[in-house]
Nucleic acid binder design. Structure first.
Lengths: 142, 142
DNA sequence: TAAACATTTTTGGCTAACCTAACTTGGTGA
DNA sequence: TCACCAAGTTAGGTTAGCCAAAAATGTTTA
């Protein structure tokens, strides 16, 4: 069963809402994804068909186990990429966030894992050089 | 004027065809983008409307100046990302290619620039550490 | 508890991007 | 040169994802 980038985004949004507020509401999904409520309903119906959310109209919305796993995988890539952009490359947080938000849906498992290992390696093997780089870049930003 | 990810991909493909073969043919675009020829024609008509390609039916296809610039920008990000993935992270070329192919359409100018600077910095400041990392990862791949 | 308000859902319609089948055109070899 | 084949095009149709307007349901407050 194929899952589109957009569907993955809906799942991730629901995952974050559940994590932060406990409850998942159409209105909040719409706000976070910058779409209108009817689009959310469309998406929920499709995700329900695919067994990724429990959805019945006017009832509370929940991710299924399968949906949650997909969302968690995506979310963890999001965190990983954001950290890498900010802490290793010294990218401004807002831009780091935007880039991570897209790349998380495409990045190969192998690449994600390698980024994690690389960050760790550099931080351990040449922390001073890294600090130097970040410092230079922050200085340039003014 | 908005340009979609897909349109950017068409432009980049045409740019590469022009670069490699001199001539841009519907059949080749279709093959490279894994779509059928009618889809290419649809795309060409739209890109023509937008002033990004010169297209008249049965005539030779060319990028406009504007289209070429967009394609070049995308292409240079492609090269940059691919090199970073391969030479810094030690990702297998095929996977590096796939990831670059997606991220190139989203990566912020600032992030792209920073990746370039980071690669240079590390290669200059701690080439041995970098070699060590790549070596370890290549060893693990068996 | 019922009216008023907020939220969700349905309906109907749009665009981007793709396809197959059928057609036109252009170039090539007999 | 002309018939044929490859390449390109058109016509007509599908799907994903979005929206506005209106209807349905849920919730809160007077």
């Amino acid at each position: 069963m194929e899952i589109s980038k957009r569907e993955e985004e809906y799942l991730e949004t629901m995952y974050m809402l559940h994590k932060n507020r406990g409850i998942i509401r159409v209105k909040d999904i719409a706000r976070m994804m910058k779409v209108k409520p009817p689009s959310v309903v469309d998406a929920l119906k499709k995700l329900n068909e695919k067994g990724l959310v429990h959805y019945e109209k006017y009832d509370r919305i929940l991710l299924t186990e399968k949906g949650r796993k997909i969302a968690e995988t995506t979310y963890s890539k999001h965190i990983l990429l954001t950290e890498f952009f900010i802490e290793i490359l010294g990218i401004p947080p807002e831009i780091a966030e935007q880039d991570a938000c897209q790349f998380e849906h495409y990045v190969h498992e192998i690449t994600a894992e390698r980024i994690k290992e690389f960050a760790r390696f550099i931080q351990e093997q040449c922390p001073y050089v890294l600090k130097q780089f970040i410092k230079e870049k922050l200085a340039e930003e003014k």
